[in-house]
Computed example of a mutant assay.
Amino acid sequence: MLMSIVAAAANSSATATYMKYASQLTGRDKACRFTQYFARLLAYLVTRRISLQGTKPSASALDWLSTLTKIQGTMSTTRKILRSGKFIDFFHLLVRSLHQGGGDEVERLLNTGHKLGMFVFMLADSVGILHSALGLVRLRDPQKVTRVAMRGWWLALVCQLMAGAYQLRALVIREADLNRVRRHLEKDADVMADRECVVEERAVMVKKRAAVRQVVAAALDLTIPTAGLGLLGLNEGVVALAGTITSLMGVQDILCSK
């Protein structure tokens, strides 16, 4: 009986999905990212509750806050180690983007800006982890390296947000054009052309949803480096909540892509 239950659990679709998800570096990173920002959100809520009470916090509350802070720091360090050296990938993509011709000039420029920002972010991030976690490099001003990484990430997200908005605008215009064409075809009773128009409308709708999702994710993630650089006075709860939401979106993207 017990063996049959174990065998059924091992061969279940949930176990197969988990194994496929966990086998990917991106999947493990998204899981760590969710844990990091969710712990950060809980730590903010605990801290706020303590401050609202106006009394000396209990030992259990302080222990709970210390545990959440440790989880947040551990997950952050783990993610940095997992993506160390990834700046080489973005350097390769940046060079390809610079030499790529044709296509929309605005999209190519924003794509290049995104790759440049991610290259700077990953490079500074890798240098920082060599100093903080591994101790292989001694930096005179580690905070300066962190700020450089934040500026690179901020640039990448701004370009990603603008690219998504630009693509969304083009899709909205295309959708309006297709609607006009369909009305004209319905008057002429052109069934074949109308079917082709319907197929293209569905394709535009799928791209439109992806563009909206990109804009939302980039806008939410943008709060993190923006707050880190002190460009906006966002509190810790807003930043942690934004990171938690985009982490779940990333997990969903990976699961839906299988």
Rank of each mutant, 00 (worst) to 15 (best):
V120C: 11
Y18N: 11
V46Y: 07
M205W: 15
L171E: 05
R83Y: 01
P225G: 05
G128V: 00
A242V: 01
Q24A: 10
A10C: 11
S60P: 02
R40Q: 13
A170V: 08
F121H: 10
G152K: 00
M249N: 11
I224K: 09
L255K: 06
F121E: 00
A176E: 14
L161W: 02
I81Y: 08
A227H: 07
D190S: 15
L41T: 01
G54S: 04
Q160T: 12
T78A: 15
A193M: 15
R180S: 11
I245K: 02
R202L: 13
T17W: 06
L139F: 02
A240T: 07
G128W: 00
R151C: 05
M162C: 12
E186R: 15
G135M: 04
A227F: 07
A165D: 06
M19C: 06
P142T: 03
C32W: 06
A218F: 09
Q214K: 12
A242T: 00
V216C: 10
I129S: 00
V198E: 13
T69V: 09
D104V: 01
I254W: 03
A163E: 09
A203S: 15
A242Y: 00
G73A: 13
Y18A: 12
A203M: 14
D141T: 02
C159T: 03
Y21L: 10
S13D: 14
L168S: 11
E236K: 09
G233V: 07
A165R: 06
L161V: 03
L94P: 02
A170D: 12
N11P: 04
C159E: 01
L110T: 09
L229I: 02
A219N: 03
K30G: 02
G103Q: 03
L171D: 09
L171H: 05
G85N: 01
T74M: 04
K115H: 15
K258Q: 07
G101Y: 02
R174C: 11
E196I: 03
V172N: 08
L155P: 01
Y18L: 14
R48K: 13
E186V: 15
P225K: 01
A211G: 08
V191M: 10
E200I: 14
V216Y: 11
L68K: 02
D188P: 01
M162A: 14
A211K: 10
Y166E: 05
A170Q: 12
C197R: 13
S23P: 05
I81V: 14
W153A: 00
L136Q: 08
T246A: 04
K187A: 15
E201W: 13
A227N: 08
L68W: 06
T223M: 05
T67L: 14
G128I: 00
L109D: 06
G73K: 08
L241E: 04
M19Q: 13
N111W: 07
I245M: 02
L68N: 04
W64D: 12
S58F: 00
F38D: 06
S97I: 03
L222W: 04
H99R: 07
G135R: 02
A31N: 05
N111F: 10
V206L: 13
L130F: 11
A7V: 14
R147V: 00
G102A: 04
F90R: 06
A165K: 05
L255T: 07
S12K: 05
L52V: 12
T35A: 15
A8D: 15
G128H: 02
G237H: 06
N11W: 10
K80C: 09
V251A: 05
